[in-house]
Amino acid sequence: MSLSPVEGVALAEIESGTGSGGPGVKGVVGRSPGQLAWLRLRRDRTAMVSGALLVFFLLLGLAAPLIEMAYGVGPREQFQKLLDGFGMPLGYAGGVTGDHWFGLEPGLGRDIFIRLIYGLRTSLFIAFAAALITATIGIVLGALAGYLGGWLDAVINWITDLTLAMPFLIIALALTPTLTLRFYGERGQVSSAFGVGVLIAVFAIFGWTSTARLVRGQVIALREREFVEAAKASGAGLGHMLFRQLLPNIWAPILVSFSLAVPQFITSEAALSFIGVGLSDETPSFGRMIYRSLDFLQTDPAYVFFPGITIFALVFAFNLFGDALRDALDPKSSR
């Protein structure tokens, strides 16, 4: 099933042989497996296009306040004058004008474009933070379970099974108000930072299992290798074993799963908003926007269209990039 060490190395040898030349040839600095993967990624057009799109989205999110200054409209400003008597935006395509590029929200009359920019910022922040935390938890638990085995492995496996058995949406629905109450009491004004924090915490509790399983499997495949034994024979401790010897060899699948986890958290945030958990309306986020917009599917399709397309493009780019990354890091997996 898995790539045997000899094949993998032989493959790499062949590639480096055709590229920069074997050991006999001049040039002192070698190419690491990571550099080889980077070269492959650079040659992949899909990867470059989707990667560029992602960088663009990231920059938009980071520069949201700057964009607000240049655009001249804030995310909470309401333009009631531009709505008709039923609260629907005047004009074509949901009120698209030179001032309001993507039109206005029905009801409150807020600018869709700048809210999307801020929503992008919130959603990306939540997704990246959640992916980082879950990856960390998953790596540590998975590596410990895989490397040490025995009862620790059994316990961690069982906790994984337990986490998977808890219905995520229902528990999240129950947990969020509980946490809020614990920190704010009955009538406290919930800050948006707190809402974001709760979401990340909920994702962290439920999202680590797949990384843990992945890392555990990889570590089990590696731990009998002789280079691991060599370190052990030199007296290396657990930390050195896990973080110096094993982890550098499994960055590739971890990176891929990370790049596919980010869009998952973006959509999960939206799904939670959809059942009414998550951020308050004060904090612009993709989930909130989609959720609110669905009510206007018939009356104001443009309101559904803009957030829907943006979130689709973002998630699509992430998925494309994740796939390309997998190909580049593990040339054998597809193609």
Binding site: P5, P33, F227, N249, W251
Partner: peptide
């Protein structure tokens, strides 16, 4: 082949 860490 197996006794040297390929990432080091």
């Amino acid at each position: 082949y197996a006794s040297l860490n390929p990432r080091h």
